[in-house]
Design a protein around this nucleic acid. Structure first.
Length: 479
RNA sequence: GGCCCCUUGGUCAAGCGGUUAAGACACCACCCUUUCACGGUGGUAUCAUGGGUUCGAGUCCCGUAGGGGUCACCA
């Protein structure tokens, strides 16, 4: 059996959306799993939809996410060029060949005539008008420069059947397929033609693409057959949805890979998550790095039904990866986000990082988690009331001065030291340490939930600020 | 509208004629705990619907409903 070759063939229309990235990922994973090659081809035959810079975005996204192509416009390969606009001459040649083979024909009909073919639903259906032109007529029109397209000659009867690895046997009656345009009047091929020519010429063995091509595949097969080429294996993928009705699309402002990176998702979690959308591993382990995905990926795990993108689960995955990071790795990734925090520069950086490391799932959560360090204002003193710890406002009033006193006498303001001291105090006062630490934490933060416990926070704040915050809270309590 | 495809908890999903219908996220409870988070334990919750076939159906067949795709000189 020949070497597996898969491809990702996006059109440069502005962005690489999550669905596209997943298609690329599956193609990559399958090729790598089989020891084959993954190629990138740019489908820029629609000059009107071309968006400047989008080719670069495609390169960057694939490289950044680790979906590495063996061949492509910027890395070369033996089957180039890998940009369709640079293959224009090739398509014309094959289109003419297909005409000779009877699989296509010249069409000189103008827009008005096509327009007049509209049916009650507003759909036009070409009537094979030009199929019956004689060789002489065609040559005459060609010579006099009449604009033309080349259309596929689809049989009027019969059924096209093929086997899709995900969806099973698919059959479409030829009478339901129009004689679509293969070569446009500007000489550019349409997708319908170019994908067939290129997939064959580039030796693609497995075509992995979105489900939107499921029912048009029989007409591609017609061409493979007409040329006498071997059909590829087809793997159509279900869509990724934003909700039950709508596909995920950047056009609607849905987040892209890049947006997630900007939000501080751990990189691997994005790939990991989208791999899981529409594919499920054999084992129950869901958290997988790209290398692990490569090992475990198999086409039979791909599902037929659409999946809704759930950012919450991706966040969870990101958090799982972050938890495993060493302090230095975390610091490296977290620093750009920490710098956005008002606390940055005012406190010891490493201490801030430690406060936050086990508490964030995505890096952009860092500033809000540290807000309490710089934002300390009047708060509701009922926070001192905690039923479970049996604390009350009265108790706070009573012991806060004691807490202040022992802390004021402390030289070493370290977590361990503070903890030992305050626990000692609680024993002396005959109250539970949890109660005392609750009161202490509320007094220095004014919040019910904080990243870090009382002594941990006190260490970060330092002696001076800790004492002054206690004073502030005491005033508040006695108001 | 024609044609093609899809339908298991809130979400991702396993299942491929016989299961107490896995697992994960989320949610809830409890435990752990210096609050929160982490971690641990447990829990709530799913086969769209109507007919068949079969001793037996989430699994096979047909219909219905709902949803998606496609019907471009777009991919």
């Amino acid at each position: 059996m020949s070497k597996v070759r898969t491809r990702f063939a996006p059109s440069p229309t502005g962005y690489l959306h999550i669905g596209g990235l997943r298609t690329a990922l599956y193609g990559y994973l399958y090729a790598k799993k089989q020891g084959g090659d993954f190629v990138l081809r740019i489908e820029d035959t629609d000059t009107e939809r071309y968006v400047e810079g989008s080719v670069q975005i495609i390169y960057d996204t694939l490289k950044s996410s680790g979906v590495i192509y063996d061949e492509g416009p910027d890395v070369g390969g033996d089957y180039g060029p890998y940009i369709q606009s640079e293959r224009k001459a090739l398509y014309k040649e094959y289109a003419q060949k297909l005409v000779e083979l009877g699989g296509a024909y010249y069409c000189f009909c103008d827009k008005e005539r096509i327009e007049s073919l509209k049916d009650e639903n507003g759909n036009t259906r070409y009537d094979k008008h030009c199929l019956h032109l004689s060789k002489e007529e065609i040559q005459k029109k060609l010579d006099s420069g009449v604009p033309y397209v080349i259309r596929q000659n689809v049989p009027t009867e019969g059924t096209g059947t093929y086997h899709d690895l995900v969806y099973g046997d698919i059959s479409v009656d030829y009478k339901d397929i129009e004689d679509g345009i293969l070569l446009k009047s500007d000489g550019m091929p349409t997708y319908n033609f170019a994908n067939v020519i290129d997939d064959h010429l580039m030796g693609i063995t497995h075509v992995i693409r979105g489900i939107e091509y499921l029912s048009s595949t029989p007409k591609y097969n017609l061409m493979y057959d007409a040329f006498g080429w071997e059909r590829p294996v087809y793997i159509h993928l279900p869509p990724i949805m934003k909700d039950a009705q709508h596909k995920l699309s950047k056009r609607n402002g849905d987040a892209s890979y890049d947006d997630f990176i900007k939000k501080g998702y751990y990189k691997d979690s994005i790939i990991n998550y989208i791999a899981l959308l529409g594919w499920s591993p054999k084992s129950n382990v869901e958290k997988m790095t790209l290398d692990e995905l490569k090992e475990n990926f198999s086409l039979d795990g791909i599902s037929k039904s659409p999946s809704i993108f759930d950012e919450t689960k991706m966040k969870w995955l990101s958090g799982e990866y972050i938890k495993e990071l060493s302090f230095d790795e975390f610091k490296n990734l977290a620093l750009p986000f920490l710098k956005e925090s008002a606390a940055f520069g005012k406190f010891d950086t490493d201490k801030l990082l430690n406060l936050v490391k086990t508490r964030v799932q995505i890096m952009s959560e860092i500033p809000e988690k540290l807000e309490f360090l710089t934002d300390f204002n009047e708060y509701d003193v009922n926070l001192f009331v905690n039923e479970k710890q049996k604390t009350s406002i009265e108790l706070a009033k009573e012991i806060l001065p004691e807490i202040k006193e022992v802390l004021a006498g402390l030289d070493e303001f370290t977590n361990a030291n503070l903890f030992e001291t305050l626990v000692g105090l609680s024993t002396k006062l005959g109250i539970k340490k949890q109660a005392l630490l609750w009161i202490a934490r509320i007094a220095i933060t004014g919040r019910s939930a904080t990243a870090g416990g009382a002594t941990e926070i006190a260490e970060v704040l330092g002696k001076e600020q800790t004492i002054s915050r206690i004073d502030f809270s005491l005033n508040l309590l006695n108001k």
